[in-house]
Design a binder for these strands. Structure first.
Lengths: 251, 251
DNA sequence: CGCCGGTTTGACGCTCTTCAACGGTTGTGG
DNA sequence: CCACAACCGTTGAAGAGCGTCAAACCGGCG
């Protein structure tokens, strides 16, 4: 299967990741080449498909490069909590390399394309390429930083603020990989998805979105976020992007 | 200062960490020795002291080996969200090694003793000792896994369940480092701390603790948790320790 | 046309917060 | 040795915010 993959395929698969990581550190040509060669396969799944099921032991990690995917946990009574919404350039389960068992599900929210990187390849990287290893480690630390901000959001912020904060975060993250421009970005999710991600119900999300629309701050409709007033949105959201660690520094 | 540290001091500082990591993988003698030599200093702080302030750039990471410490974020209006409660054997800011800036505060909840490991030493480990690097990486992934479970707790579980879940988690984590026995463990925190960690108010925590006491499931008083019925506690808490990744596997 | 998934809206109720007061314990200074 | 403050825990009453339930609506598609 590796043979089927062209260099063009590999470059496409790495585009988002290199933008994301390149914003935080310098990635050398040799390191890029190692990542390119580490990709064993590229896959596509339609919306709604489960990519990884909680409790399974994986032998490869997954790098998303097109579409929207989420990590989530389900409760016995059917409630779902979305832990993180993933976009192009995000590893969905890089932590599976060392945790071995995955403690949550991963599913495609839209049709999604992703590259597979075998754990063997990750292991070789960790044995031979310290800087690249630190970069990958860093990328899992970014996930943890995003987790922490979500704990704060869900634990202490009001419903509108939580939603506004999530939409701010997605704007910044999408912009970094070239998927958002100033005033708008594509977010092909349902209101129920936003509810899952914010610890709310879809009914209440609907009401809060109406409020954001009425106050001419933001409109979410037809899978698109239109930001009418970025300043007021950030303020309402209590959004400070420091937790996204956007500075470029040697790691 | 390094010269002042005896081998006994270093061993004491590493005890919790080695128990915690040793439960998840085999740590070799050479690796233990490297960790021992990486400790540059040992410090002590009284309860309430801030150990790391959000936004600062650190040049060393901190390993807690006695007392209770928390990571937390404060909001403009004074509300506080505790992100994680740390116990002996936990790194408080290992992620600071690669994130560079710390996105949260760290403070001692009781008097606390901890060891300092300079980032220079961590860097040398990451350059020369791949397996030990993976172990350290893994330990930050454990934090992330705990974060994820907290997102689920705060996002979807009821107040009693959240509190019960936190107390289950602490029991398991403390037991691993020898700080809990079957029916009870020391937890020298205030009800306000539990509130901070569960996204509740201390008033409501008080009511829920009374309920747990009345139903003869658990008593939290005088800095001690007494578990009357572990089975019912786990069930009420919807507690499944899978997310703590307790299996010993080569990483 | 009629179904289907998703959105929108209203009425109602429960969980948790807020505010406020009181009590118990510990430490401190006169 | 007692008075007093400070801190934490406890309790009550009232209310806000969000959830629940249910129905209507809307656009797309077979």
């Amino acid at each position: 299967m590796t043979a089927e993959l062209s260099d063009r395929d590999r470059d496409e698969a790495l585009r988002g990741l290199l933008l994301k990581l390149g914003a935080r550190d310098r990635i050398g040509e040799e390191e890029k080449e190692i990542l390119r060669r580490s990709i064993s396969d590229v896959r596509e799944l339609p919306a709604g498909q489960v990519i990884v099921r909680a409790g399974t032991t994986l032998s490869e990690s997954t790098l998303l490069f097109e579409g929207f995917v989420c990590r989530y946990k389900d409760m016995a009574d059917g409630q779902r909590q979305i832990l993180e919404i993933h976009i192009s350039g995000d590893f969905l389960d890089l932590h599976g390399f060392l945790l071995k068992r995955i403690d949550h599900n991963v599913a495609a929210m839209t049709s999604a394309r992703f590259a597979l990187i075998p754990h063997d390849a990750l292991r070789r990287i960790s044995e031979n390429y310290p800087h690249l290893t630190r970069i990958l480690w860093f990328s899992t630390l970014l996930d943890a930083a995003i987790h922490r901000e979500k704990i704060l959001s869900i634990g202490r912020r009001s419903a509108v603020t939580r939603i506004a904060h999530l939409l701010c975060e997605l704007r910044v993250r999408l912009k970094l990989v070239g998927l958002a421009d100033e005033g708008r970005y594509a977010l092909p999710l349902k209101q129920a998805d936003l509810a899952g991600a914010t610890g709310l119900t879809s009914v209440h999300v609907n009401r809060m979105l109406r409020r954001l629309r009425n106050e001419e701050i933001l409109t979410f409709r037809g899978g698109e976020v239109v930001i009418h007033d970025w300043e007021r949105l950030q303020k309402l959201a209590e959004f400070n992007p420091a937790y996204l660690h956007l500075e470029r520094r040697p790691r």
